[in-house]
């Protein structure tokens, strides 16, 4: 399937692309557009104003996708807290990792194009997922 989002990918869009590839559509292809009008007819838009898979009721798009596709995995919801704070910074969650992740993504977007950002952040989010998965199993910070 084709998925479309705004050019100039930052934390929420990078995390959503990862989530879509890992949990919704393994063959996902991503298109980056400047304007909602440029979204191809066969693509599902996300993290754009006025579309279903976007910010809603104070949620960021990552949270919206988790809800929309009934992804109840608590590790994903833990990642959602970090993505939410890195993206919206509204202090809804206590996520000290957010500030660092935000800077990493901002820096990446200065030296990589959108395709490269998704390529680099794939293993990054895989790693974060594994870290929090082990943490939940252990009930403490994993080594």
């Amino acid at each position: 399937m084709k998925w479309a989002t705004r050019r100039g990918v930052h934390i929420d869009r990078a995390a959503c692309a990862w989530l879509i590839r890992r949990r919704v559509d393994t063959g996902a292809e991503f298109v980056f557009v400047d304007d909602p009008a440029q979204v191809p007819g066969d693509a599902t838009p996300f993290d754009m104003r006025g579309v279903e898979l976007s910010h809603h009721g104070g949620d960021c798009t990552f949270e919206t996708i988790l809800r929309r596709y009934d992804l109840a995995d608590p590790v994903l919801w833990k990642l959602a807290e970090i993505v939410h704070e890195a993206d919206i910074e509204d202090d809804r969650f206590d996520a000290p990792e957010a500030a660092g992740l935000d800077v990493v993504l901002r820096g990446l977007s200065m030296v990589c194009d959108d395709e490269q950002v998704l390529e680099v952040t794939g293993p990054l989010f895989d790693g974060l997922y594994e870290y929090f998965r082990r943490g939940m199993l252990l009930g403490r910070e994993p080594a």
């Binding site: 100039g8 104003r49 976007s54 910010h55 809603h56 104070g58 919206i88």
Partner: peptide, 16 residues
Amino acid sequence: ARTREQLEWIAEEIGE
């Protein structure tokens, strides 16, 4: 890019 996006999301929330 950041301030524009943040205000866009608030605009969306105002609509909701």
